[in-house]
């Protein structure tokens, strides 16, 4: 005969339960945490739509992130989501400016190409109208407001906020960071994805780029939780790869955010040689900003 249910309410059972959970969680963590050194995984082909999530925060970090992103190719990174803290209008404005410049750059390229083609054909036909092609050769450049979104989440800690209340505000930040992680805000609300690129934008990010602000630590934590429980296949589909870039201003020691994240991000990049190999895994490829 089965023992009465009340026998489960004992201290020893509680202990056994906690230990089982603890061991299980540890094993799971070990399974999802990255290896010491980054190793390139499965080779993908570039035409696959890719969503990248960029965490911006406070003046200096945002500046550096924008310098890092100057080589971003909108043909590969088809959707960009920028996470900014509430009341940080500066970072949101910088993200919009960056996207506008990206759009201008692509337009200039199209015009140059059209002129080149025209001058070639002009020799044969001689009509003076410049025609920009709607479809480009190869992969289209994904620029313009439909291809990026800016998500605002509450600040983890306000300046001069007491340390006592910080855990609560940080928890709020954590809760609010799940939404932009799970999906980008669609350009046209309530419309089902029309193509593979839109579907990728509504999916988990392929890549998460962070560089130092407190918000970044929390967003990385949220992405780990998604991987831990394999929500939307975050772990099994190899989504939410994280890259941390230590600030260019850090020459000899890591920042607090860096120390917190060095073991958990997929790649940890430093910009001064003296920091190479920190935590057994910091990579150095020269100054990147």
């Amino acid at each position: 005969m089965a023992p009465p249910l009340s026998s489960l309410y004992t201290l020893s059972f509680l202990c056994a339960l906690l230990i089982t959970l603890f061991v299980g969680a540890s094993l799971r963590l070990l399974a999802i945490l990255p290896r010491a050194r980054f190793q390139p995984t499965a080779i993908r082909r570039k035409p696959s739509p890719t969503r990248v999530l960029v965490v911006l925060g406070s003046g200096g970090h945002t500046h550096e992130m924008m310098y890092l992103l100057r080589a971003l190719d909108p043909r590969t990174y088809t959707h960009r989501t920028y996470i900014v803290s509430s009341a940080d209008s500066f970072s949101a404005a910088r993200a919009r400016e960056f996207e506008r410049l990206l759009e201008d750059k692509i337009k200039d390229e199209q015009i140059t190409r059209a002129i080149q083609k025209q001058s070639f054909q002009g020799m044969k036909e001689g009509n003076g109208v410049l025609r920009l092609e709607e479809t480009e050769p190869g992969r289209p450049a994904c620029v313009g407001p439909a291809h990026y979104d800016i998500a605002v989440i509450p600040r983890a800690r306000k300046i001069h906020q007491s340390l006592l209340t910080t855990p609560f505000t940080a928890l709020m930040t954590l809760l609010f960071s799940f939404k932009p992680l799970l999906s980008a805000t669609p350009w046209i609300p309530d419309q089902a994805p029309q193509n593979a690129r839109e579907a990728a934008a509504r999916d988990l990010p392929d890549l998460i780029l962070v560089n130092g602000p407190a918000t970044a630590v929390i967003v990385v934590l949220a992405s780990l939780i998604l991987r831990f429980f394999n929500i939307k296949g975050a772990n099994s589909r190899d989504k939410c790869k994280t890259v941390y870039v230590e600030s260019f201003a850090r020459v000899k020691t890591l920042s607090l955010s860096g120390k917190l994240l060095i073991k958990v991000v997929d790649r940890f990049i430093v910009q001064w040689e003296e920091l190479e190999g920190k935590g057994g895994r910091a990579e150095f490829w020269g100054i990147l900003v």
């Binding site: 390139p40 971003l72 392929d206 790869k241 890259v243 490829w285 990147l288």
Partner: peptide
Amino acid sequence: SFGAIMDETLGF
């Protein structure tokens, strides 16, 4: 470049 690091991370 940082662009190359991003590509490499995703296996491009």
